[in-house]
Design a protein around this nucleic acid. Structure first.
Length: 519
DNA sequence: GGAGCGGGCGCC
DNA sequence: AAAGGGCGCCCGCTCC
């Protein structure tokens, strides 16, 4: 095992930091070690900039977070430094992720300390209920950290000329900074005209007041509520809201900040969501509107291989719960169609039933459909009900590989024991109900990416990941190989998590020139 | 004039 | 038709 971090121990006897760390790392990488480092988010980008890529790692910070949660110590500082202080019984430093270039960056953790923390973590993993699964979780989470850094480094192809054309088409030409684009101003004027006085369409308060003055009582300005209203201001207002969002979230200013050299480079945060999903800390890569997909185009002579897992969450539920009936339906490509006959012949009913079971839905037809689910698929039904019950009682739940939900807050405990505790309890029940499914789906997706990354031929690159969807950018002549790698990776991820299961996890990939053409 | 929060809505 | 999980982000607005 080779230890790395900020501190690098290349070979025994050479305990000093080498003159050219990146080169030393690159040489050692030929042995394909599992690198151990404090925090890939900080340690990997400099290596990537130096042209070095690593195949495997153990990320102490991410692992510490997983372990603390599993041990019921969620919320304690999870940095390698903090973990080391806990081991030594020293004061634990506060969580302070130092931004790159921080003036007072802490001294790097010594290699000996890294080794100590690692040994401590491996021992703690052995003490868990299912160390084998947890080790897989740690490996997948760590691989995710590598991939997140690489995707941030490589960036997703983003054509600024197409982006500008799209914005101009929808909003009018780029305005002077701080001004509304022409189309937005025209819509705002229409809204004001409809009320007969100036109204700021960005102000909820002004809108509610204006509608009230026009004799229309509304609770909110949510678009579904506005759509039920008959008033001339509604149409321009809805159009305004949609375009204003595009302008402020993914407009010219956004592109100035996030797009360089034909690449959109967001900052992904592996494990940034409690469920294990990724988050972003800038750039909003996980909320790019579908209309923007036409802006994502492969380089000349290259292609985009776009792949998404079909109905991932219900399949995960079927596999976890070991529900034979649901697993049989999940052996089909379209799971909901396969379920339709169990829900009165309607595919939509099957979908509502499954989503309500996984999200805790109670409105509309949900109660009726859930009753049918309880009868037809008792094991799957019980699986999510048990998770909900655990949450309502303030207990913790775990994903398939052992990611543990955060505990309820002290405030929650107060409220729940009070007179109106039912609402808070049900809210938490919905959270834990969803957690077990969402977190396991995230694990499957991480495993998929980790395997896929290892199968990609150079210079193919993962350039986008969004919960259950990946994009690989590769030369045209690698398209077929990459498409094969995707389905191979999906099968391997399924095997890694669930072993032999009748549940299928279809991951169909297509090679396209433009992201918008993928669906 | 900056921090913090709720509304609203994009994605899954 | 309208409500159920997870996020990030911008806006208006309040408060200090």
């Amino acid at each position: 095992m080779v230890l790395a971090g900020e501190t690098i121990l290349p070979v025994p006897g050479a305990a000093r930091r080498p003159a050219d760390p990146a080169r030393a790392v690159a040489e050692l990488e030929r042995e394909r070690p599992r690198w151990v480092w404090a925090d890939a988010r900080e340690d990997y980008p400099p290596l990537l900039s130096a042209g070095v890529r690593l195949s495997r790692c153990h990320d102490l910070a991410l692992t510490e977070g997983l372990l603390l949660a599993a041990e019921g110590r969620y919320g304690e500082p999870r940095s390698a430094r903090a973990a080391h202080a806990r081991l030594r019984g020293l004061p634990v430093p506060d969580e302070q992720p130092s931004a790159p270039g921080t003036l007072f960056a802490p001294e790097p953790l010594a290699a000996e300390a890294v080794a100590e923390v690692l040994a401590g973590q491996l021992a703690r993993i052995d003490a868990l209920p299912d160390p084998g699964r947890f080790r897989l979780l740690v490996a997948a989470e760590s691989a995710g950290a590598l991939i997140a850094a690489e995707m941030g480094h490589d960036g997703m192809p983003w054509r600024r000329d197409e982006h500008d054309a799209l914005l101009s088409e929808l909003l009018g030409p780029r305005p002077v900074h701080g001004m509304r684009p022409a189309r937005l101003q025209a819509l705002a004027d229409e809204v004001s005209a409809a009320f007969g006085h100036p109204v700021n369409p960005d102000s909820v308060r002004q809108l509610v007041k204006a509608f009230k003055g026009a004799g229309v009582a509304i609770e909110s300005t949510r678009s579904w509520e506005l759509k039920r209203i008959d008033h001339p201001a509604v149409a321009p207002l809805l159009a305004y809201k949609e375009l204003a969002r595009l302008h402020s979230f993914h407009g010219w200013t956004w592109a100035d900040q996030w797009v360089r050299g034909g690449r959109f480079r967001p900052e992904y945060v592996a494990g940034g969501v409690v469920s294990g999903r990724w988050a972003t800390s800038g750039g909003g890569a996980l909320q790019i509107p579908k209309v923007m997909r036409r802006v994502v185009r492969a380089d000349e002579g290259w292609t985009l291989v776009v792949a998404d897992a079909a109905q991932l969450e219900p399949r995960v539920l079927a596999a976890m719960a070991g529900d034979v009936g649901l697993a049989r339906a999940a052996g089909e490509i379209d799971l909901y169609s396969a379920l339709a006959q169990s829900f009165g012949g309607e595919r939509d009913n099957a979908k509502i039933a499954m989503l309500s079971a996984m999200y805790g839905g109670t409105s509309g037809d949900a109660p009726k459909l859930l009753a049918m689910m309880r009868q037809r698929f008792p094991q799957a039904y019980r699986f999510v009900e048990d998770a909900a019950k655990a949450g309502e009682e303030g207990r913790l739940v775990r994903s398939w590989l052992g990611r543990t939900s955060p505990p309820p807050s002290e405030r929650w405990k107060e409220i729940v024991s009070g007179p109106d505790g039912g609402r808070a309890a049900r809210d938490r029940g919905r959270f834990t109900r969803n957690f077990v499914v969402q977190a396991t789906a995230a694990e499957w997706a991480l495993a998929l990416m980790a395997v896929l990354r290892g199968l990609l031929p150079d210079p193919a690159r993962l350039v986008f990941f969004q919960h259950d969807e990946v994009i690989v950018h590769c030369p045209l002549d690698q398209a077929e190989q990459v498409i094969g790698a995707v389905s191979g990776a999906a099968a391997e991820a399924t095997r890694l998590l669930f072993g032999r299961t009748p549940v299928r996890f279809p991951m169909e990939a297509v090679a396209v020139d433009c992201y918008a053409d993928a669906k």
